[in-house]
Write a protein that binds this DNA or RNA. Structure first.
Lengths: 211, 211, 211, 211
DNA sequence: TGCTAACCGAGACGGTACGTCCCGTCTTGCG
DNA sequence: CGCAAGACGGGACGTACCGTCTCGGTTAGCA
């Protein structure tokens, strides 16, 4: 009956949020400033997002959607690739701050936790699923017997990869360089085989493509 | 020549910070409230810590110092143990929020990053070092040839364990239960052997592997 | 276009200021306390008055507006009257302190000086103007020839009366009693005639003095 | 028995106070800053003066002691002279601010009021006494019959002169220029004659309205 | 095609916490 | 044992944002 909400405003707000994040970071980001940049009233902003955190989750989600998994020919190379591109994303200051800050807020806010799962975790888990499928096609990993186990393994692998990279770059504050990526991939690769192989031997040469 | 700083005040402030964190959480924590609880003037507080973040790093560090690594007889059990106790720490809401918030702030603050490395990362890395040494004594892992490589491996393992557990519980928001711990340990264990073995199969798996 | 400022708040703030002045005096007066009493946020207060001084000028101005000049039948009596009522105002401790403190601040603040001129000086000069007009009607003083000279004389008379009374009661700390008022009026009255008469002898002293 | 107080410190403190007053004014003046400039501990300062006000009264008193009354040959010229030199003093910003601020504080502090009377009022009243004496010698004013009346007249004159000049320059914020001084002197001179007109009835009794 | 309700921008509002400044007092160790 | 140095508990400052609440002015969709 009455006037509908302007969708132009939504886009302007998210764009303004990203722009402001780059310039002033999470803690310097204020609702008032986002509103000002978007040429929008604070009221309008609060009508759509109840907090800075929710706004930032939505604004940041699209950045992670840029991640892709080009086929590099082997599982090892695919892992190295995704680790490298994820680390590259985390080098952008606004991604770092936003991600951690939002996670921090979420520890006290179930609603926000849910939004993070939807907008970030589940969306990026696709990379793991794709990588595993590809490795299975190549015969590098055994084909899943049980879809439930498959999902649990994918979850674990996602947490190990994302967790290790984030911890390395943000907490330990060390570089995610060639050397680190190689060592990490080595560690992960054998672990993966073991996990998937359920007791089968896994010398990385020897019976390599033996299945 | 002048009056020295009161170490009583330091203790009172850190204790007050921990107490307040439990009650009101990170975002509810204010410098004024900490000062009030500690029976101290705000100025005294700012004379020692320039921000809420630095204060919380120091206050939280002692909580992590409680982590220990009792000898469970095998590397696998030791890993399971440390994962379980680390996860238990992360179940306390104030630990969760504080840790992530502080990491988030640190992305824009080198000084804070350094304090985190000193007070948290380097201090807890001792668990990995101890676990590896013990496994080497038991013959579960080959003895280090090169101290530098040893350190890099310890760093990697620390990031993988801490990162995976944190990501699992805080980002993916899944439980760190018996099942997850077992799967994670399996993954990690084989990866470790591979990493340490420099191509050689682990000593006690030798026969098994080669069949 | 936006919400207009609440005039209710203005009134509440000025009233709270006066009330607080009576209770705690100038130096005990804080912006925070005024805001609390007025049921108003500090920001609202600072939006209108940039300092305690400006606020107090406005709050005190209305007290001085109570001054009136009832017709006592002669210039001498009118002067005695205004001196007495002005001195009575200055006996109130909050008027004393506020007035002097504000003048003191104004010596370093042109903006405040202007506000004092507007809110106090110009407003109260009306008493002098009215008194002179009445005296001229009565024939006690010659009618002004030149409006500019008239204004300068009024200014001078105002400074002499206000200055002498303030100095007497606040600096010399002596009483502005009947005796002092009579002596002061005597002094002022003859001076006035001389000033206004532009060389003409005063009506009742002429022969006496020259003789 | 114990070590005596350093009198050097006293001089250094008063000098530092005057220097600081010139630079930062009354409101910018802090005990800590005075101590720092004087190379003295705050403790030492508080041992001698209990408040900023008392310190400033003592520091400012010596400035007023510079006032002198050279003989200009006539009462009118002497008055013009003292008004001019007093106004010149009041043009120095630190004198203005300090004087008014101290008077303001004094309205709530009898001890300070007494110190002002001693250090400023009584000391400068000498100018009036000297001027009257000189005028009486010249025959411009009748010789005093009663010392008590003489004192009261001197007090009144002092309040009128000091009050008018202070009010003119600090409250009305007008210039104490040649024109103003002349008008003021005219007013005062005739008033003085009338006031001194010994034994004669006051103008508002006796021959009040033409008689 | 005009009514009218929901939308919009602007920004004032009552609040909370901030980090700073200065207060006046209290150690501490040098001379 | 007086002093400088400066740490201490305390209180107010003026600012920055918060999230809510008027304000008029502006659409959009039903009548």
């Amino acid at each position: 009956m009455a006037r509908p909400r302007s969708s132009t405003a939504d886009q302007a707000i998210l764009a303004a949020t990203r722009a402001a994040l780059v310039e002033v970071g999470w803690s310097g980001l204020t609702m008032g400033e986002v509103a000002r940049r978007a040429g929008v009233a604070k009221t309008t902003l609060y009508r759509r997002w109840t907090s800075k955190s929710e706004l930032v989750v939505d604004a940041v989600a699209v950045i992670f959607d840029q991640l892709a998994l080009p086929d590099r020919g082997s599982l090892a190379d695919d892992i190295q690739e995704v680790v490298a591109s994820f680390a590259a994303l985390l080098e952008q200051p606004e991604t770092q701050t936003s991600l951690m800050a939002v996670v921090s807020e979420a520890t006290r806010d179930e609603r926000l936790r849910e939004r993070i799962r939807e907008a970030l975790v589940e969306r990026q888990k696709r990379l793991v699923v794709a990588g595993r499928a590809r490795a299975q096609e190549r015969g590098e990993l055994p084909v899943d017997q049980d879809p439930d186990t498959a999902r649990r393994h994918a979850d674990l692998i996602f947490d190990v990869i994302a967790g290790a990279v984030v911890h390395r770059s943000l907490v330990s504050a060390g570089p995610v360089d060639e050397e680190w990526r190689t060592a990490f991939t080595t560690l992960l690769l054998r672990g993966l085989e073991e996990l998937s192989g359920s007791g089968k031997p896994g010398p990385d040469e020897g019976a390599e493509q033996e299945g």
